[in-house]
Design a protein around this nucleic acid. Structure first.
Length: 585
RNA sequence: GGUUCGGUAGUUCAGUUUGGUUAGAAUACAUGCCUGUCACGCAUGGGGUCGCGGGUUCGAGCCCCGUCCGGACCGCCA
C-alpha cells in the first residue's frame, strides 16, 4: 500500500497516529537545523518536518537532495504544530517523518506550480500536465465535473436517458465548416465529425426515446476565440410531445438546480425577452441584464435640427449612464476612441452631461438649445448628474456599437460582477436571415427549426417576417444554450429546404434519412443544447473556457503540447488514396 | 481573410520614444549560513543566438523591409 491518507485530510483529530503519505514536493523551507516540506497531492498540502536531533542524519542528507516536484513517499507521526497556520485545513498538524522514499525525481519545472504561476499562457499549455497540478486549474476541472454530475443527476431524475450518437457522420454544407475524416475502406469518401448530434437526436425522438440527453463532444472547423474551441462539449437534449413552454420550464429547472447545487445560488426568476426587444433595448440577442442602461431611441427628438449626422442616420440611439456627468473630456475622448475602433465601428460619439445644477452641456450645443436637449433628457428619464451617450448611423451597426459601449460602461462602473448571475430566455427569434452576399435566406437557428404555426402561411409570401419557436438561454451576456421546436412534418421540412435554396435532390441527398424517418410516425418534438464549457467558465467566473478544458487548443487551433495537427506519413496517405497538392490561391 | 498588441536570462518583464562603454530587475536555480518556517530570511554565484532573415548606419535589442510564433478582437461560428 502506497499511502494511508491523502495530503488534505489529516487534522488534530489524527494526532499521534502513524501515517504514510505520497505526493509532490511543493516547497522546501530549509531553516538550518530544521527543514519543512510542503507535500502536495490532489487533495491538499500537508507539512512535513525534519528536525536535527529528532531524526537520523541520513534522513536529513536525503532531504537535501530533494527538489521541487519530486514524487516522494513518507511515513511518520502526526504531531501538533508548535506554530500553527490557520490559513490551511491541515495547518494545525505536521508529519514528523521517520522514513522517506523518493518515488521519482523531477527536473526543475519551467514555471512555478503556484496559484499565481510565473508561467505565460503558451508555456503552461506546452507543459499542460504541470499546469494541471496548479490549484486554480484543478478547481476549474472539479467545478466542471460537478456540473456534469449534477446535470446527469437532475436529468436522470426526470426520466431523461443518455444515449451516445456517432462521431463519424456525414458532411453537410449548412452551418459551420465540418472537420472531415477520410475513409480508407471507401476510397475518395469522407466522414464528417458532428457539429452537433442534431439529426440523430431527432431520429431518437422518432424512435420513441422521448427524453434524451447527452454530454457530447462537438466539432466545428471555424476560427477560435477565448470562448470558442474547435472541439467543445454540449449538454444536448431533446424531448417529444412538448411545446416551447414545456422545454423552457424543464431546462429552467436544470439551470436552477445547477446554480443551487454547484454554486449555492438561488435563481429567483428567469425572465423571457422577445428577440425584438433584446435588440431594441440592448442591441444584442444576448443581453447582459445584470444592469440597466437600456437603449432609448431618439429619432423623434433628435432629427430635424440640421445636425447632418443625426438627420442622415437610420437610427439615433443612446444610453443614460447614471451619475457620470462628471466624466472628464479625456474620459469621453477615450470612449470615443473605443467606439471608433474598427471592431466596434462607430464613426463618432455624441454626449450630453446633465450637470448637478440642472444645466445641460452637450457636444452638439451648436445644433441643440436647452429646450431641444431637454427633450432628450425627458426621453431618457434622466436626472441631474447623469451622462447621455448617443450613437447614430445604420440601424444594425449602431445597435451593435452601442451594445459594445454599454458593456464597456458596465465594466467601468463595476456592474458586471462575476458573482452575480442574471439568466434569461430570449425567445421569438426570426426563422430566417437574409444574406446579402449570397442573395438567399439562411436559417437563423438551423433548418430543422419549426416556424410558429400561425406564421406558416407567410413562408410563401414573406419568409423574412416568419418567427420561430426558437429560444436561447443567456446568462450575463453569454449565450449558454439554445434550441427550438423542430419540424416533424415531411412536407414542411421539404418546404423549408426549398426556401433555403436546396434543390429537392440536394435535400434528399443530404437529409433524406431524416425526411424518410418523418414518413414513419415522427412525434412533435423540440430540444435545446447548452455549451458545457461556457457554462463551466461562467460558473467559475472566467471569460475564457480554456482553463475549464483539460487539454485545450490555442488560438490557431493547435495543441502545442502534442504538436498537432501534424503531417502524416506518405504510407498513411497512400493507404487513404490521398495525394496532396498545393492549390493556387 | 482582416485589425491590433507582443517575442530580451529557466520564467515574468523593463530597456526601443531620442541608435553609442560590459543589456538590467524580480523570481527560479546553485552554494553557504540560519531550530518554528509556511511567498521564510540573509549572503554569494552562474545564467543572454535581444524569435529568425535581410537592409540602413562608423555603430542596431532599439530604425526599415520580410518572415515565423503567440495573445486579444472583427469576419466566420446554421
Amino acid at each position: 500500500m502506497y499511502r494511508t491518507h491523502t495530503c488534505g485530510e489529516l487534522t488534530l483529530k489524527n494526532k499521534d497516529i502513524t501515517t504514510t503519505l505520497c505526493g509532490w514536493v511543493q516547497r522546501i523551507r530549509d531553516k538550518g537545523g530544521m527543514i519543512w516540506i510542503d507535500l502536495r497531492d490532489r487533495y491538499g498540502i500537508t507539512q512535513l518536518v525534519f528536525e536535527e536531533g529528532k531524526c537520523e542524519l541520513a534522513l536529513i542528507e536525503m532531504v537535501k537532495k530533494l527538489g521541487r516536484e519530486f514524487v516522494i513517499q513518507v511515513t511518520g507521526t502526526v504531531i501538533e504544530r508548535f506554530s500553527k497556520n490557520p490559513n490551511m485545513p491541515t495547518g494545525e498538524i505536521e508529519i514528523q517523518v521517520r522514513t522517506l522514499n523518493i518515488l521519482n525525481q523531477s527536473e526543475t519545472p519551467p514555471f512555478t506550480i503556484e496559484d499565481n504561476s510565473d508561467g505565460g499562457e503558451e508555456l503552461r499549455m506546452k507543459y499542460r500536465y504541470l499546469d494541471l497540478r496548479r490549484n486554480p486549474v484543478k478547481k476549474a476541472l472539479e467545478l466542471r465535473h460537478k456540473i456534469a454530475a449534477e446535470t446527469r443527476k437532475y436529468l436522470d431524475s426526470i426520466d431523461f436517458i443518455e444515449i451516445e450518437t456517432p462521431y463519424l457522420i456525414k458532411s453537410t454544407p449548412e452551418g459551420a465548416r465540418d472537420f472531415v475524416v477520410p475513409s480508407r475502406m471507401n476510397v475518395g469518401e469522407f466522414y464528417a465529425l458532428p457539429q452537433s448530434p442534431q439529426t440523430f437526436k431527432q431520429l431518437l425522438m422518432v424512435a420513441g426515446y422521448d427524453r434524451y440527453f447527452q454530454i457530447v463532444r462537438c466539432f466545428r472547423d471555424e476560427d477560435l476565440r477565448a470562448d470558442r474551441q474547435p472541439e467543445f462539449t454540449q449538454i444536448d437534449c431533446e424531448m417529444s410531445f412538448v411545446e416551447q413552454d414545456d422545454i423552457l420550464k424543464t431546462f429552467e429547472g436544470l439551470i436552477v438546480h445547477l446554480f443551487k447545487e454547484v454554486k449555492n445560488v438561488d435563481i429567483a426568476e428567469m425572465p423571457r425577452m422577445k428577440y425584438a426587444d433584446a435588440m431594441r433595448f440592448y442591441g444584442s440577442d444576448k443581453p447582459d441584464i445584470r444592469f440597466g442602461m437600456k437603449f432609448v431611441e431618439l429619432n423623434d427628438v433628435a432629427k430635424g435640427m440640421n445636425f447632418k449626422v443625426f438627420d442622415d442616420a437610420e437610427l439615433v440611439v443612446g444610453i443614460c449612464v447614471p451619475g457620470y456627468s462628471e466624466y472628464t473630456r479625456k474620459q469621453i475622448d477615450e470612449l470615443t476612441e473605443f467606439v471608433k475602433r474598427p471592431q466596434v465601428g462607430a464613426t463618432g460619439l455624441v454626449f450630453a452631461k446633465i450637470n448637478l445644477d440642472g444645466s445641460i452641456k452637450s457636444s452638439v450645443d451648436k445644433f441643440y438649445d436647452t429646450a431641444a436637449l431637454q427633450k432628450w433628457v425627458d426621453a431618457f428619464g434622466a436626472k441631474s448628474g447623469d451622462l447621455l451617450l448617443i450613437l447614430a448611423g445604420a440601424k444594425e451597426k449602431t445597435q451593435k456599437a452601442l451594445s459594445e459601449l454599454r458593456l464597456e460602461m458596465g465594466n467601468r462602473l463595476g456592474y458586471r460582477n462575476n458573482n452575480v448571475f442574471a439568466p434569461l430566455w430570449v425567445i421569438d427569434f426570426p426563422l430566417l436571415e437574409w444574406d446579402e452576399e449570397t442573395n438567399r435566406f439562411y436559417a437563423k437557428h438551423h433548418p430543422f427549426t419549426a416556424p410558429k404555426p400561425e406564421h406558416i402561411s407567410l413562408l410563401e409570401t414573406d419568409p423574412g417576417s416568419v418567427y420561430a419557436n426558437a429560444y436561447d438561454m443567456v446568462i450575463n451576456g453569454v449565450e449558454v444554450g439554445g434550441g427550438s421546436i423542430r419540424i416533424y412534418d415531411r412536407l414542411l421540412q421539404q418546404k423549408m429546404f426549398r426556401i433555403l435554396g436546396f434543390s429537392d435532390e440536394e435535400a434528399e441527398n443530404q437529409f433524406g434519412f431524416l425526411m424518410n424517418a418523418f414518413r414513419f410516425g415522427a412525434p412533435p418534438h423540440g430540444g435545446i443544447a447548452f455549451g458545457f464549457d461556457r457554462l463551466s467558465s461562467l460558473f467559475g467566473g472566467s471569460e475564457s473556457i480554456r482553463d475549464y478544458i483539460a487539454f485545450p487548443k490555442n488560438n490557431s487551433g493547435r495543441d502545442v503540447m502534442i504538436d498537432s495537427p501534424s503531417k502524416i506519413a506518405d504510407e498513411q496517405l497512400k493507404e487513404l488514396s490521398i495525394s496532396l497538392t498545393t492549390l493556387p490561391k
